[in-house]
Structures are given as C-alpha cells and as structure tokens.
Design a protein around this nucleic acid. Structure first.
Lengths: 170, 170
DNA sequence: AATTACGTACAGTTCAAACTGTACGTAATT
DNA sequence: AATTACGTACAGTTTGAACTGTACGTAATT
C-alpha cells in the first residue's frame, strides 16, 4: 500500500480539502479561504461560524472574515433556516460556473483598469515628446512610445482572450 | 490638469512600471518580480544585475533571485555581448505569447496533478464505503462520493477550457 | 427591561515571504 | 600565480498577511 492510506472519513476529507483547495488557490483565493470554501463544500448541510471554526481549528473571527471574502466574490451564500439564530452559509451551486464567472470578471475589470491608466500615460508621453531637445531624450521617448503601443496591444489581446472564454461547463 | 502630471521621463517610466506590473501580477508573479520584469522591458538594452539594482533601489541579491524566478518561467533570457563580463538579461520577445504559454502551462500542470490526486482518493472512498456499518456513515460517504464526482467534473471542464485557450495574440 | 447569544471591529501576535549584507566559489584579468 | 570582479548561498532582519482574544453593538430570548 502506498504512503497515503487514509482510513476513516475524517482523514479522507482532510486529504480532499487539502487537494481541492490547491485548485481553488489557482483562482486567486488564499489558502485559508480555499480551505474554508472546500470545508463548506464537503459538508452536507449549511454551516455556522462555530462549526467552521471547530472543523478547521481556527478562531471564529478568522471564519467571519473568511466568509466575508468568499461572500464578496459570490462563492458562498447565506441561508435561512427557521428556528436557527446563527448565520448559516453554503457554497453557491454550480461550482464551475461560479468560479469561472468570478475569475473572468476579476481579470476583465483589472485589464480595463490598466488599459485606461496606460492610455492616460500615453498622452503624457506624447506631450513629453514635444518638449524633447536632446537627441538621446528623443530616442528614449520614442522607445517608450513603442513599448506602450505593445502594452496596449497586450491588453487588447488579453481582453479578447477573456471574451472567448465562456463560463459555462462543457 | 488631473492629479497625475508626470513631467520627466523617469516619472513616467515609474508610473508605467507601476501600472503594467499590476497586469503581470494577475499572471501569478509577485509584485517584486513583476516590477523587475517591466523594468527590463522598458529598458532599451539588456541590463546587468547592478543596473537593475540601482534602477529599482533593491539589493543585488534580490535582483539575482528575481531574475532566477523570471528565468524559470521563461520570461527573461540571458544575453551575451562581447567584452562584457557581467550577465546581461533581456525580456523574452513576444510578450503576450510568452506569458500566455507560461500561464496556461502552469494551470494545466496543476489541474492534472489535482485530477490524479483526487482519483487516488476516490478509490479510498470506494474502499471506505465497503467498511461502513452504520447508516449515517454510509450516507456521509455517499455524499462525499457525489462531491468527488463533481470535483472531477470541475477539473475536466477546466482542462477543456484551458485547451480552448490559444496562446497566440489575436 | 434585563439578559443572553451572536457577528464583527480592533489591537496585538504569529508566521511566512521579501529583502539585506556578508561570505564564498568561480572565472576573468593582471 | 595572484588578484580582482562577478553571481549566489546563507543567516539574519524587515514587512505584511493571517490569525487570536477581547470588547462592543445588535437582535433574540427571558
């Protein structure tokens, strides 16, 4: 038998949490947030902060901020259950679509932001070009202009690639 | 005039480095490595460790390890120039393709790895299923199995999405 | 109205990543 | 052969993110 013989359910769950959270980290989640999410995901019913806390062995405060992060990204939802005072949280359904949507969104936002910033700077480079006196200064500015054109193109390509990426499962 | 009036070339370059490195950070580079890369990218000729060091105001050791990181990901290349003893580095040409290739590769590797790990655990869950005596144990194991199927599907979808992503600029 | 249960803001602590300076091995120069 | 110049390994330091425990505001319970 190999080195990874996990016998009881608890061990196996730990292992699954460890592995799957590695995948979710690729989506930009911190290790802590990933593990929290997978914990919810492997639990058959919505969990309270206290349950998460004891499941992961971390403080309740840590769970609170973790849930807030996940919630901000639309990865978990609050759930109501009659007679239960504590907040209950559950992962959003449609795991793949949720993560893809959230991820693509994050990229698109950032790319747009950067595109705008670069466009603004490009104008200043133009302006700077006018002011040049020495040849060396001219050359350097021209070089920078060329690079900026490349960077804008880079963002354009990125943007198109993102659009080609549909968030629905195959 | 807006709040961001950068007059000389140096200021503008700093601004560009700051902005473009934000985009590169999205590819999983650290802030330090991104800034180093963009510094090289905006320099008209290959740079030595000492040049990078003074350009970024960081130690030479930091440059050395940074260059190693970038080099490992295929983002910079060492360049030879007759008569120059110091190592010279330059960003790889075809910025977009380089980053996309490196990024897609990173994802694919990770996804495969995780797929394999999960498959291995799945067997143990099967085995565990046999051993169950109580009804509750059975239910929990069955639930875990269902989730594992979903996780495998998640990775399959991811893998296909990655394959649909071509690394060449539009 | 008083008490209890809950989530979170906040200040302090822990821990890991980034960075620095020194020391060393290797290769070019003398 | 001796010296100098270079890149990097390593140990110690700094810095920022994650985490903890306490304190507090709010809402349910008594």
């Amino acid at each position: 038998m190999g080195g990874n013989d996990h016998h009881n359910l608890e061990d196996i769950q730990m292992k699954v949490i460890h592995e799957f959270s590695k995948t979710l980290e690729m989506f930009g989640l911190s290790m802590a947030d990933s593990r929290l999410f997978v914990t919810l995901y492997l639990h058959p019913s919505p969990m309270t902060l206290d349950e998460m806390s004891s499941a992961l062995g971390k403080s309740k405060t840590a769970m609170s901020t973790g849930i807030r992060n996940l919630s901000d990204q639309g990865l978990v939802e609050r759930v109501w259950k009659k007679g239960v005072r504590k907040d209950l949280y559950t992962p959003t359904t449609n795991l793949y679509k949720t993560f893809m949507t959230s991820y693509i969104q994050k990229w698109q936002t950032a790319v747009n932001e950067q595109e705008n910033e670069l466009a603004a700077v490009e104008e200043q480079v133009q302006a700077n070009m006018q002011r040049c006196v020495k040849q060396k200064e001219m050359d350097e500015t021209a070089f920078l202009q060329e690079r900026m054109r490349e960077m804008v193109h880079f963002h354009t390509c990125l943007s198109k690639a993102l659009q080609s990426l549909h968030p629905d499962p195959f």
